[in-house]
Design a protein around this nucleic acid. Structure first.
Lengths: 324, 324
DNA sequence: ATGAAAGCGCTAACAG
DNA sequence: CTGTTAGCGCTTTCAT
């Protein structure tokens, strides 16, 4: 049979150009022969690979699987496959991006960018559609999806203020990462609005989003003259470190110090005590990012959108009224 | 300049065919012009895509990220990119495999197979190199890497026997999954060898590897005439469910019932009590699987290898001597 | 509604 | 060691 007719019959977009009867026969024959389209050839011809690259900072961080799952679902449905790259400890993402571009990816989802990240410019220069997820860059030059960090901190701080806490500390994330910087800013703004004095709202910055860094920052907080009666951590991993620090100092949670996390990672309800935390819509974030990317692939000139998702406070056992 | 010379200079394998001086100039020019190889074209020409498909049952299961990370590291180093597909709740993996094959993947890593899985035959028929990781199929027709489940259960059961437990229950994983079936067999063999009577070694099978299924199976175990003083769970997620069941029945761990998990998933040291568990070498598993796959791609006729990794018992607070 | 023809960018076999 | 040639399998104008 005739190659172009076959091609048309097999392509959903071009199928209308071919007689239904013929299309049927072609599909039947294709099935019978076990014929499968060679996507590499199609990619070469069309310049579209049907591949999307996703960069994550650490695939073992429990926050990312739901995001990836949301991304993959949406992209799968649109016929794209995703290549997930765990950037890990590597210094520069640029080489990873370049390798993905060489593979011909049609777009990029970046869950790795820091606030002043040259990778954003690199993607812009390469002219490749890209969106940010979970993190923002300072100049907001790419479309993005993230949780409302200010609102999340407001929920956490107000909850503690309502319980009667007046001295609240914050274990902040790295300040070059948007969640670190924005949650810190949100914390400070909410604390001021709740009438907490600046002196009673100490902040210590963790060097990374890890349990160990959280422990160290919390120890610094606990060593302060005015020991806080509650600590808000910038994420759950840091909150785990806060638990470690409290145990190391012989302090009870929530009896001596209340703790609030951020992200609601799996199984924090099993901790002792179960962690009060700000749940963010990770799966939705992934789905929204994928949709945004698909739009930008279809319409590269589309206006940059910055989607902000509402978080939710999950109250568990790690928060209580301050000691009398 | 001359296309084939350029091609040769840029390919590590063919570089020896070209004069060093020329190769240098070509590399310089390529850099200057920002030239990047079009891998889609190369894939079409050579029939090799440099893509590997990885099928996982659930990317949010904390056991898989370390495996994926091990796989990706090895494959990256060999110039391959990985497409991870979360098969999730979908009935048949076949369509996923077919889509990956259509994309031209050079090989497949399967972390999803059940004991009698048609997907193994499907891969064999398609003639695509494939290896199993973390799970085995019944007929062992593909190379594989897995943890030594019998040994893991021996470690768990002996630990409990040494503490003085004589009535030990097992929350088994699904029996159509190799880890479920093999850990159960290992449990029964070890219990017999440790001198525990068959009547004192009850087994309840969980419908899936989830916390909720673990809870239900544990409740059945606890409702038995002779309530076990210790429970070995087939994995940590199930052990979490055992904790839930104990709490629901007002039983303390380890004071009333000791619990042992399997996998050492992240943060189980933070539970109350910290979970005693069998640590399996997940990252190594991933690395070994990737190496095995690379070998089979290089030498499709190579002998099937079945690699078995040694587990390690991590004793924490969830196991103690039985109540007097 | 279908057929013909050209070419995407690369590599490998062959010739020089 | 380098140049020539052909073609991987598909899609898409263009012509019928």
């Amino acid at each position: 049979m005739h190659p172009s007719t076959v091609s048309r019959a097999l392509s959903p977009d071009m199928k209308h150009l071919v007689a239904d009867a013929v299309a049927q026969r072609i599909h039947a024959a294709a099935n019978a022969l076990g014929y499968r389209l060679n996507l590499a050839a199609a990619a070469l011809r069309t310049g579209r690979s049907g591949l999307i690259g996703v960069l994550v900072p650490d695939i073992a961080d429990p926050g990312f699987p739901p995001i990836l799952s949301g991304i993959a679902d949406q992209l799968d449905a649109a016929g794209y496959a995703t290549i997930v790259v765990d950037v890990g400890a590597h210094r520069s993402q640029q080489q990873f991006v370049d390798r993905l571009i060489a593979r011909g990816v049609d777009g990029l989802v970046l869950a790795t960018v820091s606030l002043r990240d040259s990778i954003v410019k690199h993607c812009l220069d390469a002219g490749i559609p890209a969106v940010l997820v979970n993190r923002l860059d300072g100049s907001a030059r790419l479309a993005s999806v993230a949780s409302d960090d200010a609102e999340g901190m407001r929920l956490a701080v107000n909850h503690l203020a309502e319980l009667g806490h007046v001295s609240v500390g914050h274990v902040a994330g790295p300040s070059n990462i948007s969640t670190g910087a924005r949650r810190r800013a949100g914390f400070e703004a909410s604390a001021a609005r709740a009438g907490l004095s600046a002196r009673a709202t100490a902040v210590e910055i963790a060097a990374s989003y890890t349990r160990e860094a959280g422990r160290e920052a919390a120890l610094r907080l606990l060593a302060r003259r005015q020991r806080p009666s509650a600590i808000v951590a910038a994420n759950d991993l840091l909150a785990l470190g806060v638990y470690d620090a409290l145990a190391a100092r012989g302090l009870g949670c929530p009896i001596d110090v209340s703790v609030v996390g951020h992200n609601d990672m799996p199984y924090v309800d099993m901790l002792s005590p179960p962690l009060t935390t700000v749940r963010i819509a990770q799966r939705d974030m992934g789905e929204a990012a994928a949709k945004l990317l698909l739009e930008r692939i279809a319409t590269p000139a589309a206006k940059r959108e910055h989607i902000v998702l509402a978080p939710e406070l999950i109250v568990r056992g790690s928060t209580a009224a301050p000691p009398a």
